[in-house]
Amino acid sequence: MFLLENVIHQYGGQTVLDMPSWKANQGEQWIMLGPSGSGKTTLLHILGGLLKPTSGNVTIAGQDLGSLAPAQVDRFRGQHIGIVFQRMHLLSTLTVRENLLLAQFVAGEPQNEERVDEVLEGLDIGTKKFAYPSQLSVGQAQRVSIARAVMNRPKVILADEPTSALDDQNCEKVLELLKLQATAYQATLVITTHDQRIKDAFGNQFNL
């Protein structure tokens, strides 16, 4: 679950985000809609603990982020929040396997090869375990970035425009995968998009 109350964010003296309160229960799947520049990404970063809002309360999985020290927020994020970025940002010097182990390592979790296999199998890319990101297709790379996001069994999965770079077929697949993964981990899922193709795929909508 998460709860955003009276969140306002300013940047360079300008208010870039001023939103009504938003509450999502554990396991709910949401889509966040809004035109470009409406602050979708900013809101997602605040939800992910990547950005501290200028004012307002952010509670994620029962934890008030505002009460944590920066390093604690980092750790909390690593352990409880999985983020899928528009650009996958896989570390190009590491193999798929190492990218996934890195997610466990930097979050301070024990590294587990079986978990790597399990997640990769679940996303149907087990054969790419030892491939480097440059050897993957866009669709495969997207799956790896989803795999990385769910490595630590997050309570919240955030996806920023995950389908914008994909064709219709892949778009469909990625949505399915995200939903499937979120269901599997009982995670709350939020997808930001301006993609008209997917706005009807979710019951819960939040408009900015």
Binding site: G48, P70, A71, D74, G78, Q79, I83, H89, L91, S92
Partner: peptide, 16 residues
């Protein structure tokens, strides 16, 4: 910088 930001997003602290 993307890699470093990504590491941070995955939970790495500044010190790390």
């Amino acid at each position: 910088r993307y890699d470093l930001a990504m590491m941070r997003a995955l939970g790495a602290s500044r010190e790390k």
